[in-house]
Amino acid sequence: MNFAVVVFPGSNCDHDAYHAVKHVFGQSAEFVWHKETSLGDADVVILPGGFSHGDYLRTGAIARFSPIMASVRAFAEAGKPVIGICNGFQILMECGLLPGAMLRNRDVQFHCEHVGVRIEQADTPFTGKASVGQMLRIPIAHGEGNYFAPPEVIAELEAHRRVIFRYASADGEVTDAANPNGSVHNIAGICNEGRNVVGLMPHPERAVELVTGSADGRVVFESVIQHGV
């Protein structure tokens, strides 16, 4: 499979995503600079984490105007798999491919730690090999991951099973103590209506080899590779 890893000025998880896809999973991967207008022959698009354009105004606020985003939108609207990780998730919300917005973490601290993340749905390209209720221990690294959407949008996400990842304790309980940032309903990741666009704050690409402390993120990549076979 061909993965396109979009690189914005200030992206800093682009190489982690590339390494995971190319070296750990043996797939084809290409960096695509944000000023490009074509995604080439990509089968999957990754919007990686980082601080695109410095995130000085708001996270992802400027990146959504990058030339490549028209192609990302067309790719997404064609039903092909797109994943936004951390800043990539924030960009997907700013450009309207996913609903909601991120507030500052409720304790105003930047959190860089492994957290418990529960798989809520296994019918997206990125969770097809997981089981519902499966617990992942994967890292987060963000200051603005406090997911917010108006109550009617949250109700819609829940009703249509569009919450894909939720912060949970090691034994799978969705508790306030397991919520690192104050996200409403402990939401860590969601998908679009077509279920092909997924955004999440935790970093599965940083948890694909045990040397980094966890390999629980592998299932996200194994899922999309299986999806494309």
């Binding site: 507030l103 500052r104 973490n105 409720r106 304790d107 105003v108 406090n146 917010f148 104050g182």
Partner: peptide
């Protein structure tokens, strides 16, 4: 400004 219905972590801290 944040909408009135939106929690403001920075304002709370201040």
């Amino acid at each position: 400004t944040l909408k009135p219905s939106v929690f403001d972590p920075q304002g709370r801290t201040i």
